[in-house]
């Protein structure tokens, strides 16, 4: 059934899937004030892949991705434990853990893997521009880029996760204390959410690179936060904004002949700027309710 699409079309599709999958978990991160977790995980994956390499002596994604996901989970849990212990507020725990993990990753890399060349760019930090070229086969036929199918899988898993846990996730995002009195297992859902965040972040980084992922986790979700009042609206709007940034950004990168991942992130930032100014303008003109 060979899928015959141009590289450019694949680029749009992949970037849109990045926007959607990041928005799905990004909304919850924004509401729980954990936006910087994406940035943190994008650094700690280094420790995960280095450890995975030292244990298995293989550079195959089969080991690298689970290693990175475990490192991401460890970041989320450890930083949560630090902030629960008191005196240290949420953000600080994240910062302490990820910088330490990243430093350990570099040290291990320079100590053990000094002569075996691990090129970070090739191993785990992907680049959107090249993602359409890395294709996979199914029953002997080329079915398109690996990044497309793995991101599609992430989007489907995330959708299922949100569909099943919508009420619990919503409750714990807005008011964990009330949620607990209503019988929601807040801690369990928090950990499940952290797992979803780790998986989403790692697969995205592997496909398109870290810069774009950090931006797509934070920017569309915050624009949606400014424009909506219900969680469902926020999720849908944020995904749409992710797709819009993908289309706008890739067009921009073609015009400027520059990095598509950076362009998509910049385009999302421009939409945010526009929305903030329009909101200020309309509220000054008395047209908006808030």
């Amino acid at each position: 059934m060979g899928l015959e699409l141009s590289d450019n079309t694949w680029l749009f599709l992949i970037a849109s899937l990045v926007g959607i999958s990041c928005s799905q978990v990004g909304c919850f991160l924004v509401l729980r004030r954990l936006s910087m977790l994406g940035d943190a995980i994008s650094h700690t994956v280094l420790l995960g892949i280095v450890l995975a390499f030292l244990i298995t002596s293989s550079l195959s994604p089969v080991f690298m991705i689970p290693g990175a996901i475990i490192a991401g989970l460890a970041t989320a849990f450890l930083s949560g434990a630090i902030s629960r212990a008191g005196l240290i507020s949420g953000d600080a725990g994240i910062g302490i853990v990820f910088t330490c993990f990243f430093a350990l990753g570099i040290i291990l890399l320079s100590y053990f893997a000094g002569d075996t060349h691990i090129d970070l760019d090739c191993v785990l930090y992907g680049e959107l521009l090249f993602s359409p070229m890395d294709t996979i086969e199914w029953r002997g036929e080329d079915i398109g880029p690996r990044a497309f199918w793995s991101l599609l899988l992430v989007v489907i898993l995330n959708s299922l996760f949100i569909f099943i846990g919508f009420r619990s996730l919503k409750f714990s995002a807005f008011d964990p204390i009330v949620a607990r009195t209503q019988g929601v297992k807040v801690k369990l859902w928090h950990y499940l959410l952290m797992a979803a965040v780790s998986i989403t972040t790692v697969v995205n980084i592997e496909s398109v690179g870290a810069i774009l992922v950090v931006a797509m986790l934070a920017v569309p979700a915050n624009i949606a936060l400014l424009l909506s009042k219900r969680l469902l609206d926020m999720l849908v709007l944020s995904s749409l904004l992710g797709v819009a940034s993908a289309i706008g950004g890739i067009t921009l990168s073609e015009r400027a002949d520059s990095s598509p991942s950076a362009s998509v992130a910049i385009f999302a930032g421009l939409i945010l700027l526009l929305v903030i100014f329009l909101k200020k303008f309309f509220s000054r003109a008395g047209l908006a309710a808030d």
């Binding site: 936006s35 920017v219 950076a262």
Partner: peptide
């Protein structure tokens, strides 16, 4: 705006860095 501190940090970090990468390429 309604945007919280942590989100503001993540937005500025990623968009500024992206602008830098954009110019570098």
């Amino acid at each position: 705006t309604k945007i919280k501190d942590d989100s503001a940090l993540a937005i500025v970090l990623s968009v500024f860095f992206a602008i830098g990468v954009f110019q570098l390429t």
